[in-house]
């Protein structure tokens, strides 16, 4: 079942034409790996899906309902269902790990303190940061920050997660941790778009690979086809 569809997305920054007609769809439970050189507009694409960036033309449909022209207020409900895991983590640096993860719960649910702390404990177990709830973001390593950011994006059980380079800049051990978290979430039925340069992780996790090149999706097929593709543009990725 299709839950998210992008149709002919165009996006400019002044004269800089980032997206020149991007189209693809995401099915329920599916993980898409979105590859592309740096600066090709992968982050802008993810940001556009939840309305952090406004597209110039095209349609974005969530459960066949257009969400690309909604106001900030109207987008609120969709931002709970489609969550964005920032490349840097983007943790609130004035509050601790517990409060960072609890933020969406406090904003959008009526859970009691006790219920919140139970949920956070579970989440900390999942991201392997038990006992670290009272640390401030500045006390965490980059990898830990990313995991806390993922936890915060995940705490409201969204339908789709958009991961922006979750393994970039991590050592192999941390990369394994993050990919294993993503695998567990996928097993729970979560759909995702996984933006990355990390081909092995993408291949191990994704059901489909997309390549964004010069403003368009130039490849959209299974990981197997990706590995054996004869297209030189695709091969370039696989070799690198």
């Amino acid at each position: 079942m299709e839950i998210l569809r992008l149709e002919n997305i165009h996006k400019n920054f002044g004269v800089h034409h980032v997206h020149k007609g991007v189209s693809f769809a995401l099915n329920k439970g599916e993980s898409i790996g979105l590859l592309g050189g740096s600066g090709t507009g992968k982050s802008v694409l993810l940001r556009s899906i939840i309305g952090l960036e406004r597209i110039d033309s095209g349609n974005i449909l969530f459960h066949n309902e257009r969400i690309d022209h909604l106001t900030e207020d109207q987008l609120k409900d969709f931002r709970i269902k489609i969550s964005y895991s920032f490349q840097s983590g983007a943790l609130f640096d004035s509050i601790n790990v517990f409060e960072n993860i609890a933020y969406p719960l406090r904003e959008h649910t009526k859970l009691t303190e006790h219920e919140i702390s139970i949920k956070i404990k579970d989440m900390l177990k999942l991201i392997d940061l038990e006992g670290k709830e009272h640390l401030m973001p500045s006390d965490l390593s980059g990898g830990m920050q990313k995991r806390v950011g993922m936890a915060r994006a995940m705490i409201l059980d969204p339908e789709i997660v958009l991961y922006d380079e979750p393994t970039a800049g991590l050592d192999p051990q941390n990369t394994l941790n993050v990919v294993s978290i993503m695998q567990q979430l996928k097993a729970r039925g979560l759909s995702s778009i996984f933006v990355t340069h990390d081909i092995p992780s993408a291949l191990s996790l994704c059901d489909r690979i997309l390549i964004l090149h010069q403003g368009k999706i130039i490849f959209n097929d299974s990981p197997l086809q990706f590995q054996f593709s004869s297209d030189p543009e695709v091969k370039k990725f696989f070799i690198s």
């Binding site: 952090l52 409900d77 969550s83 983007a90 969406p104 904003e107 959008h108 915060r152 994006a153």
Partner: peptide, 11 residues
Amino acid sequence: TQQVDAIRALG
């Protein structure tokens, strides 16, 4: 540091 974007992204 994208914390303002995070506030928006979290609804």
